[in-house]
Amino acid sequence: NIFRILGDLSHLASIVILLRTVQKTRQVDGISLKTQLLYVLVFCTRYLDLLTFRWKSVYNTLMKMVFIGASVRVIQLIQECKTRNAVAYKDMMARDTFQIKYLVGPCAILALVFNYKFTVLELCWSFSLWLESVAILPQLFMLSRSGKAGTLTTHYIFALGLYRALYIPNWIWRYYTEGRLEKLSVFTGLLQTALYSDFFYIYYKKVIKGAGFELP
């Protein structure tokens, strides 16, 4: 359906925006390495089913591979910045102070409690859903502490938030047309969208109405 396609495309757009900008400008200003590392973990644990070869469709399989590849490439580019632009890299690391163990630990516990089957694949899948819902926190934490964000960061987070928001009408659509109600995805998806909603509000007020971007 249209919501799902648009959602996936804005997800892809967010990663492309990030990749292209970092590649072109060699700048990692305002980007949280921790959030990016969490996304690598999210994609690798979620798409483990690629290894079982029970692939859903060409689209589904290709997108999964692209997401894993692109998230790894982002890390590579950030690491390249370490040698090319050591000052900017150090500055980023100094501001990227969120403790990710407080996210990974609880997500692992939640995955053990909420899952469809007690198998490695299902536990990893559930873990990836919980982790994705909170993976943006180091990035938002960084933003709220610095109070300012470059256009790269704002556009990146906007595209990511849009992807999450579009998945909600997708689930409503699928509930009515296919009788599909997949509680884990829906719950973690709503949680994730809630984390973005404050950002959306500020984005609307500042970026769309033309003022600079600042978080309170």
Binding site: N60, E122, Y167
Partner: peptide, 10 residues
């Protein structure tokens, strides 16, 4: 039922 759908989204 839920398991059947579990991995068909990204």
């Amino acid at each position: 039922q839920e398991e059947k759908f579990a991995h068909d989204e990204l």
